[in-house]
């Protein structure tokens, strides 16, 4: 275990993250990059971007609370130090996505009210399940919830967003790329560290699997609510802008209905859960359909 954890040292993190892919960036993107005119000049598209970004800020706030809360519950110093880097990563994500809200025209004084207006209640419930485990200093459940379920979901959502925005919005894509690189590290730690703990405490399996089932339900409900909102797609059609034909999981997102996109994303994330949970010795639990 010591060798595996040494790969997650702060020294490695400094070299790969602040001195690596974040070098010469400002709020996660190249200096001088801005939100595209199409988005800033169109109220419907701008509001849609604000609504989406609000969910990212809330997800990252949850991740910040969870990773910092898990430091005191970690059973070894090396895990504490890895979680210290993750805490800072999550704080950075909160900061860059909050900055995006400002860039999209949200006034600083209005931030909290915009967040509560647009917060998806299912995402809030998803976060509550995780934070309850963290609050109880339950390291095994906390890391599975945070580094496998939450980060696994974020990873695929960010990849899909990256694909959708790849032609139209390089600034947002750069922010997402840095975030995805961080998430990959977090998921890797979760898989590696928890595998050995699950072997050590097999009696914890059922409870942790139940948590995954609950969190997955709220995640699917979040996706369902998000993809029900078709205003932006209708607006693009109305103004004669073609949707991006970017590929996600081999599918052309430009020709898919929102329903199809929702199922593609849900299937991708749940498939990832199944694989990752299997690797750490947990059995994936199919959630109730929302």
């Amino acid at each position: 275990m010591a060798d595996f954890l040494s790969a997650y040292s702060i020294q490695n993190w400094l070299e790969s993250c602040p001195q690596g892919y974040l070098e010469d960036t400002s709020y996660g993107h190249a200096v001088g990059e801005g939100e595209p005119g199409l988005l800033m000049d169109n109220e419907v598209l701008r509001n849609d971007a604000i609504r989406t970004t609000v969910q990212l800020v809330l997800g990252e706030r949850c991740a910040l609370a969870a990773s910092s809360g898990l430091i005191n519950a970690a059973p070894d110093e090396a895990s504490k130090r890895f979680l210290a880097t993750q805490t800072l990563d999550e704080a950075r994500h909160v900061e860059v996505f909050t900055q995006r809200l400002y860039d999209l025209g949200v006034a600083k004084d209005d931030l909290e009210s915009v967040l509560s207006t647009h917060a998806n209640p299912h995402l809030v419930a998803f976060a509550d399940v995780l934070l309850e485990k963290v609050d109880k200093k339950d390291f095994v459940a906390g890391v599975v919830g945070q580094n496998i379920v939450l980060e696994g979901m974020a990873f695929s959502v960010f990849e899909m967003m990256h694909a959708v925005n790849s032609e139209m919005n390089p600034k947002f894509c750069h922010v997402l790329s840095g975030t995805i690189a961080d998430e990959r590290r977090h998921v890797g730690f979760g898989e590696n560290r928890i595998g050995s703990l699950i072997k050590e405490y097999p009696e914890r399996k059922a409870e942790v699997e139940q948590m995954q089932k609950e969190m997955s339900y709220h995640m699917l409900a979040t996706f369902a609510a998000a993809f029900q909102d078709v205003e932006a797609i209708n607006e693009l059609e109305k103004i004669g802008e073609e949707r991006s034909h970017a590929k996600f999981q081999g599918a052309d997102l430009g020709v898919m209905d929102p329903d199809e996109m929702e199922h593609l994303l849900a299937d991708t994330v749940l498939g990832e859960f199944k694989t990752r949970l299997g690797r750490i010795g947990l059995e994936y639990q199919t959630p109730v359909a929302p």
Partner: peptide, 30 residues
């Protein structure tokens, strides 16, 4: 300092303090 700073994120009164403490957590870990 690492354990205290990380725990203080949960009780910090505002977002800027939380973000500062997150940088402090990484510093203390280092």
């Amino acid at each position: 300092a690492l354990e205290a700073a990380s725990g203080m994120i949960q009780i910090a009164p505002d977002r800027h303090s939380q973000i500062f403490l997150a940088t402090q957590v990484a510093d203390e870990g280092r």
